[in-house]
C-alpha cells in the first residue's frame, strides 16, 4: 500500500529513541497516523511541529497497518505561532478539535479550511471568528450542525437573533422574546460569512454557542472535557479585544 498526499501535523509522539508517531490531517486520507523513522532527529524536529504542512508518502504492507511516513516540509509555519499566546492556544485547540474526526475518514473541506485558518491564525482580530466557524463546521461535519436557516417556531427567515440550546435551531426576535433568558444570543457573523472582523462581544457569544454544543454532542459523550486550550484561547483573544470582557 502506498499513497502521497499533503498533510497538516496535528501531533507527534515519541516512539523508542529515534522514531516518532506522527498524526496528520491529510487532504484526501483524513486524520492519519504513521511512523517516522528518525523523527526525533534534529533535522526532522522542526518539520514535525503541529501546524506545519508537509508532503507525506505513506507506505505499509497492509492497509490496516500503522505504516511508515516519509515526510518533507512544505509550509513550516509553526514558528509563527510560538510568540503569540492566542495563536499557540488556538493551534492546540484546533488540533484537539480535529482529533475528534474519525481516523482515516476523508474530510477534504475540513483540511482546506484548517489550512486557511492556520495561515491567518496569527492575526488576533481574525483568529476568534475563524475558530468559531471551524467549530461550527466540525459540528456539522460530525452530524450535529446547527440549523440557522429559519426560525424554529415561526419559520421566519429574518430577525434571527437567538439559538435554542434545546434544538440547536435559530429563533426569531419576536418568537424568542418570552424565553430570551433561556436562549443563546445568535451573533450576526454566524449569518454573514463575509464578515471577517466582528465585534468582540459577538465573538464571545459565538464561542458560548459552539462551546455548549461541542460539550453536549462531542466531548461529553466521549467522556472528555472541553480542552483547557479553548478557554485559554478565548481569554487570549478577548484580552486583545477588551470590549467583550
Amino acid at each position: 500500500m502506498q499513497w502521497a498526499d499533503d498533510g497538516i501535523v496535528l501531533g507527534v509522539r515519541r516512539h523508542g529513541e529515534a522514531s516518532t508517531i506522527v498524526e496528520l490531517m491529510t487532504r484526501g486520507h483524513g486524520r492519519h497516523m504513521g511512523l517516522v523513522r528518525g523523527g526525533s532527529s534534529s533535522r526532522m524536529r522542526p518539520i514535525l511541529q503541529p501546524g506545519n504542512t508537509v508532503t507525506a508518502t505513506w507506505r505499509a504492507r497492509l492497509d490496516e497497518h500503522l505504516g511508515n511516513y516519509t515526510l518533507e516540509g512544505a509550509r513550516l509555519r509553526s514558528s509563527l505561532f510560538l510568540g503569540a499566546s492566542h495563536a499557540i492556544y488556538g493551534l492546540t485547540h484546533l488540533a484537539a478539535l480535529t482529533r475528534l474526526l474519525p481516523e482515516r475518514d476523508p474530510h477534504q473541506e475540513i483540511y482546506e479550511i484548517l489550512e486557511s485558518i492556520l495561515e491567518r491564525l496569527e492575526d488576533v482580530d481574525q483568529a476568534g471568528p475563524l475558530v468559531v466557524r471551524y467549530e461550527l463546521m466540525l459540528l456539522a461535519e460530525l452530524g450535529f450542525g446547527l440549523d440557522l436557516s429559519q426560525c424554529a417556531a415561526t419559520g421566519a427567515t429574518s430577525e434571527l437573533v437567538y439559538v435554542s440550546p434545546k434544538s440547536g435551531r435559530a429563533v426569531s426576535r419576536d418568537a424568542g422574546a418570552p424565553w430570551q433568558d433561556k436562549l443563546m444570543r445568535l451573533p450576526a457573523f454566524f449569518m454573514d460569512e463575509e464578515l471577517e472582523k466582528p465585534p468582540a462581544t459577538d465573538v464571545a457569544d459565538g464561542f458560548e454557542i459552539t462551546g455548549f454544543f461541542l460539550a453536549r454532542h462531542l466531548f461529553e459523550p466521549r467522556g472528555l472535557e472541553v480542552p483547557e486550550a479553548r478557554r485559554q484561547f478565548i481569554a487570549a483573544i478577548l484580552r486583545a479585544q477588551p470590549s467583550a470582557a
Binding site: Q49, F81, L82, S85, I88, T92, Q232
Partner: peptide, 15 residues
C-alpha cells in the same frame, strides 16, 4: 524548548 508544547507551557506560566 522551542516547540509547540514547550511554548504553550511558557505562555501558560506567563498568564
Amino acid at each position: 524548548n522551542a516547540t509547540v508544547d514547550g511554548q504553550t507551557t511558557a505562555h501558560y506560566i506567563t498568564d
